[in-house]
Design a protein around this nucleic acid. Sequence first.
RNA 1: GGUCCCAUCGUCUAGUGGCCUAGGACAUCACCCUCUCAAGGUGGAGGCACGGGUUCGAAUCCCGUUGGGACUGCCA
Length: 483
Amino acid sequence: MAGPRVRFAPSPTGYFHVGSARSALFNWFVARQHDDGVFILRIEDTDTERNREEWVDGILSAMDWLGLDLDEGPFRQSDNQAQYATSVAALNGGGYLYYCDCTGDDVAKRKGDNKTPGYDGFCRDRGLDQGPLTALRFKTPREGVTTVPDLIRGDVEFANATIDDFVVAKSSGAVLYALANVTDDRNDRISHVIRGEEHLSNAPKQMMLWEALNDALHEDVALPAYAHLPLLVNEQRKKLSKRKDPVATESYRDQGYLPEAFVNYLALLGWSPRGDEEIVPLATLIEQFRLEDVSHSPAFFDVKKMAHMNGEYIRSLTPEEFLAQSAPWVNPWSSAWRPTDREPGWSEDQFDEALYAKVAPLVQERVATLGEIPAMVGFFFSDGVSYDETAFAKSVGNDPLGQTLLAVAVERFSDVDWRADALHEATIEIGEALGLALRKAQAPIRCAVTGTLVGPPLFESLELLGRERTLQRLRDALARSSQ
RNA sequence: GGUCCCAUCGUCUAGUGGCCUAGGACAUCACCCUCUCAAGGUGGAGGCACGGGUUCGAAUCCCGUUGGGACUGCCA
């Protein structure tokens, strides 16, 4: 038996939604589990009002970033108009459709207290001819039940009477989603339709269309298997909204999430690998993934957990890999790709690649995202120090002892061996002379040199920063405190 | 309102009738480590929505209630 043929079918109407990313990923898993599985990308751009070409580029680059490679496509619905016309003609010829000239207001007005869902079938038997304002509706069976065999949820039954006569083609002639989608799935011989749960109620309509097309076209294309994935929700338990929630996959890339970590986290939303370990190699994810094991309930997209996971991935990088991965954030000028709206706090001239290579290991284990790096190493590359005023006041400005310590440090550091361990020893001694434990003694120095009270290990940092720059900053801080 | 889906710690989940004194992860708290911050280590607190059944036995099966969500477009 041939391998599965699955498709990811986004519409390019905005940033690449993390929920879409997960749908794409699960489809891709299914394809990659088989040697002959096929993963197809179909751009559903039939809504010309809302589509924009830049969003198509966004989808492509985000999928590339995630490593979701295609076997076929990208196809575009805008290229398939002829096939849609064929579907419409066949359906119409087979008596499955009728013209309707009702406006939305007409339908709403008639609806009133009527319990019938959606459209009431007003034009179904009026025998209207095609006109400038007539849409084409599908004659839904009035009796019987349509059962959607869902791989995740089991059989889901819909009474046909509850499904209204939906529009298949607009009065303009443009074919709508339901028919376009079904036509393409048939032509692409899709075996598994794997998509978000918001499409579950579309499934019976699409099955009706599918079978009507088989009949009208005298074909016998097998229905696909359906799998409706649980929704991704926000803290309010609402479907993640493009408008209100941080759902743009691109923004996570810009923040410095590694694609491996992002994929790993996404895989955990609605599914889980065997065993207690959640950090799982991609190959294992692919091997273990089963649609049947996908959970039924919505999942909250927890950025905190993803950040933690990303930190683990970052820490597991070799120093060389870390250097390469972090380059776009610290040295965008010589990177092929750079994150948008994220300038490091220094200029190209100020950046010192060799120095960064030595600094990098100090921050690798302290960041959860690559985007956090610049703030942590900025003091190495900028000329002056940008002070956190609260920290400065606490450790130097309002602390005479801190000022004394700085003054002593200037003396002592002038002729100490410029190595981390020697600086460490010297600082201990300076502190002891003033009755300060090392944790207290290092604070004013740290603040004077880096501008804040938190950061990479101090003595290694001083060694890398160099004697001259360190002494200069200690003197500057001292001068600053007496102003 | 109608149709459909869902319901295990705050969150993501394991669990498919006895292995459950309900396991793991994130978050949280305490302690350890420690030049700061992280990381790491150890430990703690924290959950089967409720009510009926079925069964020798129910987180697991059935029914109901409650609660949440999706859809309900000449959008996808």
